[in-house]
Structure formats: C-alpha cells, structure tokens
C-alpha cells in the first residue's frame, strides 16, 4: 500500500491523462490568426516603405513558435502518445504534416504576391516566379506524400468517409464544370474559373468527410 502510494505520489499527474481538444484547438487558432495578422501587417508596412522583416519570415517564425507551444503541451502526456500504434503515429504525422503544409502555403501565398492589398487566396494577382515554383513543388510533392501516408494508415470507418467525400468532390466538379463551360461559350456566363471549381470541390469534399466521420 505504502509502495503504491509512493508510486502515485512520484508519478507526474498528467501521465495517464489524455490531452483535451480545447488547448490544441486554441493553440492552432492562435497560431493561424497571429501568423496571418503579423505577416499581413508587416507586408503592408513594407509596401508603404517601412522597415522590418518580411511577412514570410515573420509568419514562419510565428508558425515555428506555434509548433513549439503545441509540442510543449503534447509532451505533458507521454504515455498517451508513446502508446500509439505505428499506424496511429503515421496517421497523426500525415495530418500534422498536411496542416503545416497548409499554413506554410498560406504564408507563401500571402507574401509572394506583388499586390499586398489583393486577397491572397481568391485573387489571380501576380506571384513572384520563385514563390510560384516553391508553391507548385510544395503542393505537388507535399500533398502527394501526405496523402500516400494518410491513405495507408486510416481505419476503415475513415476510409469510407474519405471515399464518399472524394466521390462527392468529384461530382461537385464534373456537374458544374461543363455547364459553366458551355454557358461561357455562349457569353451567358463569365469565363470558367478553375480555382473557383477547385474551391467548390474541396469544400464539398470536406463537408461530406466531416459529416461521415464526426456525425
């Protein structure tokens, strides 16, 4: 009994607890908003002739700080994640990698465009060639690797959600795209915007996936 009590006294309080959802969510949101705010402010400041680091550098530093804070939080629960199976570790790595890739893409998009007043995600304003090549490589290679790992590590409940979401995303492209194309050829609609269709596909995919996975 005394040994047991001693063990319990010496054992860190968090050893058997699971990390909650609140703190990781707050850390992620704070990182994203702070990153966007700092990068946007600095880019606008520099465009007005001011000094200071570029939004890309500052945003990257905020991202690193956010990852560091998340790591400090997660490492308080060693037994929780050290007990994970190989599948779960790879799965989590693929998700975390995709999120980081998304954040990095957002910083690059924001910082790589010449017109800092234009919306970074929904405008077609000019990008510097270096940033454009980097973004294309990041998306092409990064997403391919993350999706390859993800698809090999999801359980079959998530696989079902992912497959149906993929099909819904496919329909969200193949139904409106030809409609828009023929209407545009008759001057009844503006020219086809590939990125708008891409956005529609991604949003449909995400909604169906989230519904099937978390309902």
């Amino acid at each position: 009994m005394a040994m047991k009590d001693m063990t319990m006294v010496n054992e860190p309080q968090d050893m058997h607890r699971r990390p909650g959802v609140l703190w990781p969510t707050l850390i992620t949101l704070a990182t994203v908003f702070l990153m966007g705010g700092v990068a946007g402010y600095l880019d606008a400041h520099r465009a007005d002739g001011g000094d200071g680091p570029s939004g890309l550098v500052a945003g990257g530093l905020v991202l690193l700080a956010g990852v560091g804070v998340m790591w400090l939080y997660v490492r308080r629960f060693p037994l929780f994640w050290q007990g994970w199976s190989r599948r779960k570790r790879l799965y989590t790595a693929s998700i975390a990698g995709s999120v980081l890739l998304g954040l990095l893409t957002a910083i690059l998009l924001r910082s790589g465009q010449a017109d800092v007043t234009a919306d970074p995600f929904f405008s077609n304003s000019a990008l510097s060639p270096q940033i454009a090549i980097l973004l294309a490589l990041l998306w092409g290679a990064g997403i391919s690797i993350a999706v390859f790992i993800y698809q090999r590590t999801i359980d079959d409940h998530e696989e079902r959600a992912y497959l149906w979401a993929g099909l819904a995303g496919y329909y969200a492209f193949v139904i409106p795209a030809p409609m828009w194309w023929v209407l545009a050829r008759a001057d009844l609609a503006p020219p086809v915007d590939a990125m708008l269709l891409f956005g529609l596909t991604i949003i449909t995919n995400a909604l169906v996936y989230l519904w099937l996975k978390f309902r």
Partner: peptide, 29 residues
C-alpha cells in the same frame, strides 16, 4: 470508447459510429 478504439487500433469515432449503428464495420474489423 477510446480504450476500445486503442485495442482495435481504430479511431474513437469508428467505435462510436459502430455503436450507434451509423456504420457497419468491414469483415476484418
């Protein structure tokens, strides 16, 4: 649900979906 999910090496959402009848597991599961 989380403990059962760990033993099956699936997500907690998978266990919840099976329990509530929203998802029928694959034959291997």
């Amino acid at each position: 649900q989380a403990e059962l999910a760990d033993r099956l090496d699936v997500s907690r959402q998978a266990v919840n979906a099976i329990e509530t009848g929203k998802y029928d597991p694959s034959l291997p599961l």
